[in-house]
Design a protein around this nucleic acid. Sequence first.
DNA 1: CTGAAAGCGCTTACAG
DNA 2: CTGAAAGCGCTTACAG
Lengths: 348, 348
Amino acid sequence: MKGIRQLAKHLDISIGTVSRALNGKPDVNEETRKRVLEAAVELGYVPNQSGRSLRQGATHTVGFMLESGTASALGGDDFFMSVIEGMQGVLKHSHIDLVLLPCGADEDPYDYLQRMVARRFVDGVVISATKREDPRIDLLTRSNLPFVALGRSRTGSGYSWLDMDFFGVARDAVYRFAARGHRRIAIAIPDNDANLGDIFLDGYRAGLRAHGIALEEELVLRVESSEEGGAEAARRILAMNQKPTAILLNYELMAIGLYPLLNEAGIRPGGDIAVIGFRKSAQTRFLHPQLTAYTLSLHDLGVALAGALLSEIRVKRAGMPVAPANIIWPMQVVESDSDLNGPPTRAS
Amino acid sequence: MKGIRQLAKHLDISIGTVSRALNGKPDVNEETRKRVLEAAVELGYVPNQSGRSLRQGATHTVGFMLESGTASALGGDDFFMSVIEGMQGVLKHSHIDLVLLPCGADEDPYDYLQRMVARRFVDGVVISATKREDPRIDLLTRSNLPFVALGRSRTGSGYSWLDMDFFGVARDAVYRFAARGHRRIAIAIPDNDANLGDIFLDGYRAGLRAHGIALEEELVLRVESSEEGGAEAARRILAMNQKPTAILLNYELMAIGLYPLLNEAGIRPGGDIAVIGFRKSAQTRFLHPQLTAYTLSLHDLGVALAGALLSEIRVKRAGMPVAPANIIWPMQVVESDSDLNGPPTRAS
DNA sequence: CTGAAAGCGCTTACAG
DNA sequence: CTGAAAGCGCTTACAG
C-alpha cells in the first residue's frame, strides 16, 4: 500500500478525509487536519501529480515554450531567465509550477506545441518568438488552451499578448539621431520572419518620415539576430560607398560583433558612427563606448505575463468570455556615450 | 464522451483494442491498427498524459533542473541550451520529452527538487551546478529517482555523473604558461560553493607543483562567476604591487569584464598579461586578442548525458544493480593569441 | 486477434 | 465533520 491510502491507514481515517485535510477544505475538524498535516510531513507524503491531474482535469503546471533554434533564446542573453523569474513569483502564490518547454532546433515548433497541447501536459502556455504569421496562435485558440503570447503576430485576433515597444523605441531612436543632425541612419533587423523586426522597421520608418528623411533600402541591414549578425552589419557598412553616420540595432548584442569590426576599420563607434541598441542589458556593459539603449523591468514584464496567463486560465475555466490583455510594454532610454556625436563634419 | 472512448465509439471497437493499436502492441490486426491510426489523426486524438502516467507509473518526461540563481545558468551563455539540444536528439528516440525545471532564485534548490521528486513529475532528472556538498544527491538517492549529475560533488557516491575536465584544463593551462616562462600565474575561480572551482584549483595547484612554483594566496582571485567577476579580478590585479604576468579563468566570460579594465590601465591582454579561459565559446569570439581556451562538443556531452539518464531509468525499472557512469569529459586546447607572449622582460 | 474488466492515485459529490 | 463510493483516462492481464 502506498500514497494517500498508506497515510490514511497510518492515521486510521478514510482517504477522503485525508484528501480534504490536505487540500484545505473547510469541512474538516481542525484537530484532524493538524494530525494529517503532521503525518504527511513525517512520512514525506506528497500527492501524486498524475492522480490529481486526472481527477481534477488540471495539472497545476504552466509551460513556457522556448525555441532553441532562435539564437537569442537563452543562448547568450538573460532576457528569458529574468522574465521567468518574474513569472515564478506570481505563480507560486497560486501553487502553480512553471516548466520550460524547449523545442529542439530540428523539430517544427508547431508540431512540438501540438504535442504538448494534446497531451494536456500544462494548464496554460506562454509562446515567444512570435512570427509574422504564426500558426501556433490558431492552434492554441482552436484547442482552447489558455495562452499568452510574448510578442505580437499578424495571425489571429482576440488573444492575449504582451510585447516590448519595438515601434516606440525605433522611432525614438531615429528622433535622437535626427536631433543630432544624422540623415544617413542605418538599421539592423533580423533576417528571419520574427514579427518584432517588422514592427521595429515600422517605427524606424515613422521616425524617418517625421524628419523628412527618405528611406534607403541599402541602409536596411537584414542580418542574423546575434553578435555575428552585428559583425555582418559592420561588414556591409564597410563595403558601402556612402556610409551611414548612425545605426540602430534591433538586438543589442549585435553591438558586440559590430564594435570591433568597425574599430578595426578605423571607424569609431560613438565617434565616427553613432549607435543605439534596443534593450539595455548586462551583456553590453563592457562595451566602450557604453551603448545607448532602452530599459525595462524584465521582472515586472514576467509578473504581468503570469498575471495575464492566470487570468486566461481562470476565465476559460469559468466559461466566461475572455477580455484579452494586449499590452505594449513601455521602455525608457538610458543615455550613454554611443550616440552623443552628430555626423562627422567631413562625409566619408 | 471524449478521449479514447470517443475514438473507440467512432470506430465501433473496444477501447482496449484502440489502446493496443496506438501503442504498437503486436497482437493487433494490421488492418485494425491502420484504421485506428487514421482515425486518431483525423480526430486529432492524443492520449491524455495524466491517464497514461497514472496507469503506467511513468510520465515519459525527464527534467533538467536549472538554478536561475546561478549567473551562468542560461543568462548570457549558450552552454545549457547546447547540451539540452544534444539530449533531445537521444530522448526523442525513446519518445521521452525533456522539460526544464527552473528553480527560482528565492527558492531553496533542495526544497524545489524535493517537490518535483515527490510529485513524481518526471521519470528522471539531471541536476547541474553541483556544489561542494550537495544535499540534492542524497535526496535523489534516497527517493530512488533516476538521476545524473552534470558536475561532481563530494557528497554521496555510487551515483552517475558527467563533468568537464576542470582539473586537466587548469593543469594544462599552467603548463602552457610555464612553458613560456611565466612564474606569477593568477587564477580566477568562483567565490561560491560550486564544486568545479575546487577541482579547477586542484588542477592549478598540480600544474604549479610540477613546475616548482609556490602557490601564492594573493594570486587566487575568488570572484563572481560572470563578466562582472572578470572585471573584479582586473581591479584586484591592478591593485597589486607585484602583478601576475598570466591569468587563468575558470569561466571564459570573465574575460569580457577583464579585458577592458586591464586595457584602460595600459595592461594589454595577450601582451602584458597572458590569459587563458576555460571553454572556447561563441560569446568570447569578438575579444581581441582571441582567447585561448579549451573546446568540447556540448552536443556530444548532451548525448552522453541523456544516455546515462536513460540507462539509469532502465536499470532502476528493471530492479537491477546500477553501474554508475562517471565520465570526465576531455577538452582540447584551441590556441589563440591571448597567451602567446611570455612575461614582459621588465617586471612591473 | 478482440472485448470486458480491473485498477493506477487521487478528489469530490453524496449520505449520514 | 467523516466515510464509502464513483470516476477522471488510460493500459493491461485475462478470457475467449
